[in-house]
Structures are given as structure tokens and as C-alpha cells.
């Protein structure tokens, strides 16, 4: 399936943001954005993003509100397709392994089955805990032992011990932190390759947040994780790679997001190359 070497030769990465390959932290890229422009109608919201998301690592997107980090995240599984006026630039490409996700012959439904998503607000379905987990596998026509898969997914999300006796109860009966772990279990039940997380802890209390963060460390053994966060400490605690986005006003009165710096997390937080990154991570703006 993979033919990354030849792909690299065909489309050399031109962006200066690309990380040094000799980095110890670097594994092969799973997702690769090339010159991604994102439009809402005629309005350019995010400009010229090029970056690689390494396999089995946690990559954090940080930046002030409106910088387009969530928008970019949702491009990776084509969830932005739900927004009618959304459009990606004609020259923009997002590769998943070596397939362009925005090629005309790609079925967005297939993409989303491989690249899962966890949302900002816990959003379990108004169904039982069991059915919440089983929903995705049933869509995919999973033929194996569903009970076993449900248990494995709930264990994977560190929720099994808390809910094993009440699988028939509504997912909405759980606490906020449990609901979010249920959503993570639901995402991993379809055995995706990548899990995208859009501020997964912003609606949770500190203890639930820590549990989810611990979980992230376990999950990266098996999955590639991209997480958008407003919480700088969280980014520095959980992520291997960090991308800092910023936003600047455009002459048309709109605001445009762009990638400032993308490197290993300790570089971003301790010795960033850009002044704006240093200011942001030290809490001086944003």
C-alpha cells in the first residue's frame, strides 16, 4: 500500500516548516498537508499549511482563537464537507499515506472510517453505552464478536471498570469525563489509523482531564493522534510534536490563520525559532 519513497521524490516538500528528518522523534508521516488553503466562500480562512503528522506520535495544534487549527484538523477527515461554503484550495493536497484525501475519487465516508474524531463537547448518542460503541463497527459491517469489541474498546479508553455493569444504560447518564472517554472508546471501536481530537478536555474538570491525558499516552502506541488544545500545559505534557498557528487580519477585514512554527514539543516550548511562538507559549498573548 505504501510507496512513500517514490512519493517523496515526486513531490518534494517545499515548505520551510518541514521538520528535520534526523529528529529522534520523527517517524514516517501518516498525514501530510501540502500548501493547504482553506476557504469559506471567497474568504481565505487558513493559508498555505504544509506539515507532516508522524505515525504513532501525538501532534498538538496550538494557537489563539480563530487561527484555523480546528478547521485544519477537520480537513484531515473531511468533516468540513458538512459545511456547504467550505472549500479547499485548488493546489492544496492532504495526503493520507500516499493518497490525496481531496482527490475526486476518494469517498469521504471511507476517509472518516480510518481517521476518527473526538469532539470538544462529549457527544454520546442518546443510546445505551453498548450501542454507542457498537454504532461504528455495525456501520462497517463488523462480523466478529461485538461484546468482545465493546469490552476491548472500553478498556482501551480506560472506562471498562466504571461501566461494565451498566452497559445497557444511556451513554448520557455518565459524567462529563466518562462521556468523553466513551466518545474516545467509540472512536477506537472502528479501529482507525488516526484519531483527531478537537479540544477533547476543554469541557472537562481537571481530574477528568488528567485521566484523558494518561489515556492519550497509552493510545499513541497504536494510533496516530492529532490534538487541538487551548491549554499550553496540556500540549507540553502530552504531545511529541507541536504546531503553533497564528492569525493575522487581512486587508479585506477578515482574519487569516497560518502556521508559524512546527517542531518537536520541547523545541517549541523551550527554544522556539519565532518570536511570536515564544510569546504565545510563555503566555504573553493569546
Amino acid at each position: 500500500m505504501l510507496n512513500l519513497k517514490s512519493l517523496f521524490q515526486q513531490s518534494p516538500i517545499t515548505s520551510p516548516m518541514t521538520v528535520n528528518k534526523s529528529n529522534v522523534n520523527q517517524t514516517e508521516p501518516v498525514l501530510r498537508a501540502e500548501n493547504v488553503d482553506i476557504y469559506y466562500g471567497d474568504f481565505l480562512a487558513v493559508k498555505g499549511i504544509s506539515m507532516d503528522i508522524p505515525k504513532n506520535r501525538i501532534t498538538a495544534f496550538i494557537g489563539p482563537s480563530g487561527c484555523g487549527k480546528s478547521t485544519l484538523l477537520r480537513c484531515y477527515n473531511r468533516l468540513n464537507d458538512l459545511i456547504k461554503i467550505f472549500r479547499i484550495g485548488e493546489q492544496s493536497k492532504i495526503y493520507y499515506h500516499n493518497q490525496n484525501l481531496y482527490a475526486p475519487d476518494i469517498d469521504p465516508v471511507e476517509v472518516r472510517r480510518r481517521i476518527g474524531m473526538v469532539f470538544q463537547k462529549p457527544n454520546p448518542f442518546p443510546k445505551s453505552i453498548y450501542d454507542n460503541i457498537a454504532f461504528g463497527p455495525r456501520l462497517n459491517g463488523y462480523k466478529g464478536d461485538m461484546d468482545e469489541l465493546v469490552e476491548r474498546s472500553l478498556r482501551g479508553a480506560a472506562l471498562w471498570d466504571e461501566v461494565k455493569d451498566k452497559l445497557k444504560q444511556s451513554g448520557l447518564s455518565l459524567s462529563g469525563g466518562q462521556q468523553q472517554r466513551l466518545c474516545i472508546a467509540r472512536a477506537i471501536a472502528v479501529q482507525p489509523d488516526v484519531i483527531l481530537m478537537d479540544e477533547p478536555c476543554s469541557a472537562l474538570d481537571p481530574i477528568s482531564t488528567l485521566r484523558v491525558e494518561d489515556l492519550l499516552h497509552e493510545l499513541k502506541e497504536q494510533y496516530t493522534i492529532v490534538i487541538v488544545t487551548h491549554n499550553m500545559q496540556q500540549a507540553s505534557r502530552v504531545s511529541d510534536m507541536t504546531a503553533f498557528f497564528n492569525v493575522e487580519p487581512t486587508d479585506k477585514g477578515g482574519r487569516m490563520g497560518y502556521l508559524v512554527e512546527y517542531d518537536r514539543t520541547e523545541v517549541i516550548f523551550q527554544s522556539p525559532k519565532e518570536e511570536s511562538t515564544r510569546e504565545y507559549v510563555s503566555g504573553r498573548f493569546g
Binding site: 469532539f119 442518546p126 456501520l139
Partner: peptide, 15 residues
């Protein structure tokens, strides 16, 4: 209905 519900379903690969 909250829009998250649809997004959650679509995000899991539902048509």
C-alpha cells in the same frame, strides 16, 4: 438536535 450528534455519526463513517 445538537449539531454534534450528526458530526459524531458522520465522524464515525456514517453516510
Amino acid at each position: 438536535l445538537p449539531p454534534d450528534l450528526r458530526q459524531a455519526a458522520v465522524g464515525l463513517g456514517a453516510t
